[in-house]
Each structure stands twice: as C-alpha cells, then as structure tokens.
Design a protein around this nucleic acid. Structure first.
Length: 269
DNA sequence: ATGTTGACCTGTAAGC
DNA sequence: TGCTTACAGGTCAACA
C-alpha cells in the first residue's frame, strides 16, 4: 500500500490522537518483521510524544528518551482504535495512549519495520537518504549532477532512496509519463532541461496524491477514515494494454528492475 | 563504483 | 474444486 503520500496521510491521521500524548503501553505481538523489533521500543512507555514526523516513508514518534520509527513496507497499515478493540490477524504492534487511543500496525507481508533510535543517534538507514521531494533541497540540478555517468534506467534512478526519497513504483510511472520521458532511458543521458520537467512532475504527482488522501481522510480512528488506496486517477500505472490518455496508442507494460513499468512509447522518449 | 538479482512474507487472482 | 504460478504499493544485502 504505502507510497509517500499514503505515509504522509497516515501521519496526518494519527497526529490528533498521538501528538503531545502520553504513552501508557507498547505491545509487540510479532517481533519478526523486516528486522527483529528491538526490545528498546518499550522505552516509549510512560513517555510523552513530542513530535510526529515523517522522513521518506518512515514515520517517527519522538520522545525525550528516543524515537520510535515505523515503516509500512509493502502491505503495512496503521489504524487508530479505542483501546481494547479486538486484535485482528497480522496486528504486530500496538501503542496505547493514556487517553485510551490505540495505534495498531497491521502488516500481512511483514516487510515493514519497527525500530528505535536513541537521542543523538541517527540510524544508518535514515542517514543515507536523499532529499525529500517536496522540499527545496530537491532540484533539477541535484538529479542532473547525480545522474551523470549513470547507465541505469531513469526510472530505477528516481526510485533509489539515495537519490530522492519517496518515489515508489506507482508515482515513478506516473511522473515519467507526465514528464514525457521513456522510463528505460539511461539516467546519465538526460538533459538538465528534461530533469527540470521531471522534478516538477514528481512534485506535482506526489503533492496531488497527498491532497487527495487528505481530502478523503475524515477520521483516522474509524474504518471509513482509512486512507487506503487513493482514488487519484492514474494515467499509466495498472493501465498496460489500454489506450494512452494522450495519444490513444496502446500503453506498453514491461519490467524494469523487477518492477512493472507502464509507459507510452509514443509520448515518452 | 555501478548495475542486477535475490531475499524477506502473505494474500489474491489467474491458469490449468 | 483444487493445485500451481505469478504478482503485489519496498528496499537492503549480496553478487558480477
């Protein structure tokens, strides 16, 4: 489920229930996620959440004694329920506030992660990340310079977390369509001008999705408030074989770096 | 250094 | 109906 927009909307959803709240209990029901959930996450018990942040696709709950880090992997979902609500299959973690709100992490595939970061420490995972796509640190210059000499496909390039964070498979496909760039094209052989267009496309696609999700999000603590899969119209993702929305020619579907890739061979060059 | 592939794990849909 | 296969929104580690 989660690309950056979904994670950001999840952040906005849990904010009203967890920001500045005190944590009464942390329960781990399944330690074996992407990495074993460290015992240290229980340090959060008794602490106040001072900030609910997002970095890339990681959610960070700060406290004075350390930061709890959540990643949703491929299939993770967050939900806020009244304390005591029945656990369901694949609920792996629960965090309960003194107000009785329970944050549940449900992740069938268990590619997600729950980590702990001590004050002053920065996990290598976070330290090596590229710029946030919706900040000024993300520029066409950045993409242009980093890409010089790279022969890998531009789609693979923009999905690399060291280059820019938060561009997953759906939005990589969509942004490249919007920018009119063939996803197979070598990253190092794309002009500065075209990176300018691509940078803007990535920004637009992500911002629009967050806006959509934010609009759909009524109350995160109720079933119908779940952000889930946004109903943002997708031009190419999942549309292989159908007509290009621009020129009506058939959209091609291929695999790049073992990810499904859809594009219009006519509109994208 | 760079690019590609495998690995982690479950659920679902399609094909036989 | 069942069994088998392919694929799914991520990303790190291990290779060539």
């Amino acid at each position: 489920m989660p690309e950056l927009p979904e994670v950001e909307v999840s952040r906005l959803g849990i904010l009203p229930y967890f920001d500045q709240q005190r944590i009464r209990a942390v329960h781990v029901y399944h330690r074996q996620l992407r990495w074993p959930v460290p015992e240290t996450v229980s340090l959060l018990e008794g602490q106040q959440i001072t900030q609910v942040r997002r970095r890339a696709k990681y959610l960070l709950l700060d406290s004075d004694v350390g930061t709890l880090i959540l990643h949703l992997g491929m299939s993770g979902k967050l939900r806020v329920l009244p304390e005591g609500s029945p656990l369901v299959k694949h609920d792996h973690l629960e965090i309960i506030t003194t107000q009785g709100h329970s944050l549940r992490l449900n992740d069938p595939r268990r590619f997600g992660a729950v980590l702990w970061q001590a004050p002053g420490e920065e996990l290598k995972l976070l330290a090596q990340l590229g710029p946030e796509p919706l900040t000024e640190a993300f520029t066409d210059d950045h993409l242009f310079h980093l890409s010089r000499g790279k022969g890998a496909p531009v789609k693979t390039f923009i999905m690399d977390n060291h280059v820019v964070v938060g561009v997953g498979n759906i939005y990589a496909n969509e942004a490249l369509f919007m920018a009119g760039i063939d996803p197979r094209r070598a990253a190092g052989r794309i002009s500065r001008q075209r990176y300018r267009v691509l940078t803007q496309a990535i920004r637009t696609v992500l911002a629009r999705a967050i806006e959509q999700g934010g609009t759909t999000l009524k109350d995160f603590s109720r079933a119908d408030g779940q952000p889930g899969y946004f109903r943002i119209e997708l031009n190419v993702y999942g549309q292989g074989g159908k007509a290009c929305p621009q020129c009506s020619r058939e959209l091609k579907e291929i695999r790049l770096g073992q990810r499904s890739t859809v594009f219009c061979a006519s509109c994208q060059r």
